[in-house]
Design a protein around this nucleic acid. Sequence first.
DNA 1: CTCGCGCTTGTTTACTAAACATGGGGAGGA
DNA 2: TCCTCCCCATGTTTAGTAAACAAGCGCGAG
Lengths: 364, 364
Amino acid sequence: MKTAKKLTLRDIAQAAGVSPATVSLVLNGKGDIPGVTRARVLEAVARLNYVPRSLKGGSEGGGETLRFLKISKHGHTVNRDHSVFISDYIDGMSAEATRRNYTLEVVSFEGQAISAVAESLAGAPISGVIALGTELTEDDIRLIQGIGFPTVFIDTFYDVVDANFVDMNNEDAVYKVLSRFRSHGFQRIGFVASHVDTTNFRLRQDAFFKNMARLGLKVRESDVLSIESTHDGAYEDTRVLMEGGLDLADCYFCTNDIIAYGFMKALKEFGVRVPADVSIIGFDNLPQSATTEPSLTTIEVSKRKIGYLAVTILDDLINAAESQPSVKMLVGADLVLRASDGQDVPRPRAMPHKARAVKRQPAE
Amino acid sequence: MKTAKKLTLRDIAQAAGVSPATVSLVLNGKGDIPGVTRARVLEAVARLNYVPRSLKGGSEGGGETLRFLKISKHGHTVNRDHSVFISDYIDGMSAEATRRNYTLEVVSFEGQAISAVAESLAGAPISGVIALGTELTEDDIRLIQGIGFPTVFIDTFYDVVDANFVDMNNEDAVYKVLSRFRSHGFQRIGFVASHVDTTNFRLRQDAFFKNMARLGLKVRESDVLSIESTHDGAYEDTRVLMEGGLDLADCYFCTNDIIAYGFMKALKEFGVRVPADVSIIGFDNLPQSATTEPSLTTIEVSKRKIGYLAVTILDDLINAAESQPSVKMLVGADLVLRASDGQDVPRPRAMPHKARAVKRQPAE
DNA sequence: CTCGCGCTTGTTTACTAAACATGGGGAGGA
DNA sequence: TCCTCCCCATGTTTAGTAAACAAGCGCGAG
């Protein structure tokens, strides 16, 4: 047994009762090593104070690192009201990052200049970047892209910017909402937009007008409202509209759930019953939507799927031997039927397909 | 040595000089078995006439099967002029299918009803479908989708149909073309469309008008032409236009390369010099574009990348334990600079990134 | 004839042997 | 004393397998 000599990986292997190959794989986050074996190896490393030869290249105990930039420029949409879907994005990314032997680190930027975000990347010991694009402009994206790391932007979409995007399919989503309202026989279909300018909000508004036309429906200018996108802001702005004598449409598609909550709360205070007097559909399927009074019919887009796909695309970029064409991906939406649009019974989910063993599955 | 007894997998293992596990992995197309070992096993199987217990589930010697439907309804776009990009799609799919232990089979349909295509799928021993959507309508897609197999459509795009698409980003592509023309200082920018109605052609036309507006450029109605999309048809239609006294624009974006070839040929016959008198850009980067006189500046979208991504998405669908949201993917375009738009020297490709070992790479 | 049990056959995962790559140390020469 | 080269030690990765597990078949008993 070596006493004064420097520890090697073979010593750890002996201590842990495994082969040197296994120790190497564990330390490098590679291979298919079950948790119990991995734990045994790591315990031996700790107990014997083994220091691997090189600690360069990022965090200890992992392979390469992906950095998720949670960017909140102004906070109107990336805020605590929405922390649940940030969490969903991270869950989807994390699961797939782990599966591909990446470490996912999360860095938050609140109110900081995008130049500061970009600067934080220069020289960072990471392999790729996933950036939350909710509040980013086209210029912001070019700036972050320009640092040079393989980068994927989520929760935003610019069709002519040479960058990689994974977003929800707002077109598909809005079409489903409007189809739903039309199936109820509504004539005056309203839209509650937001003052706040994000790409998804703008895409949703464009999609609203486009799909109203596609479905042969007319838009009355006064049925398109614009309110603040925080809960309190949405509530206050709706009260002001109601106090100003708003002529309500048959139904409203709200550009996100938070707006829908504030909107409904204010309507209730003015004696307007949802869905009896006015039908409401939201967007995002925040957990609270199941418990609002009435429960909110809303659009769900799997953010875990978006996170999963972002990592998938980023991994391809990292591994590509040469420059890849930019890829833009839209994930389809589901309409979750609850009470607020006048629906009686929510329908069960689709029957599951038989799972295939071994192959990687998207986290859901 | 067993003589009259039934052969088992262990006999093959002994004959091939490997373990039963290895034989099982080879026969099931699993594990990381190098070619030389795989060949040894398969040779022993053949020599001893070993018949695995079950031959169900598709073709022998492979895992599951994906079926590529090469659908040519009318042949105006899916024809021999375009066989090179069908080949590129198949290359991209095949490489990735093989990497994921699928067999890719190709079935051609020429002039057949989509109902016949759909019927051919019912009960087929396959796991998933990739369909060439070039000439398919929305109803065609719903019909094929309705058979129930996990399905991905390539070379087409419908934003509100609940199906999976991988297409080129026409928006991005057209934006690049028009930006190019504008950088040349052209005022009258023309578009050569096609009589033939495919989704990509329509998307390109929409993108033309949209991006002309985006770039602050006016469209003169007479600068938007519409001709046949086969080489001869494009040539004839252009001759007719020229004989009718066409007032040429400064430049034309042709909706595909075949149209560009026919267009340029006819222009030449009327003494119009390309690019001196009129600048031309095509779309598709067919191999011939490098050797036309003048060589054609054109849009390239990696069809191998599209094929690769289609298999990636399909594999996820096949493996998913439950119903997945539909995914729509757009692959970015590159402008390949040659002579026909007045460019002097084509710029070199981007410097390659260092390849990372083991991880799967998209075929390119 | 049917059911249950045991054994045989095939499958899959967790791990390693061994080949390979990389880095460090020692020796020799300038 | 420094630099270079070679050899050995250390770490890494791939190509397989041991062994556990799953599935199926055959035989015997009820």
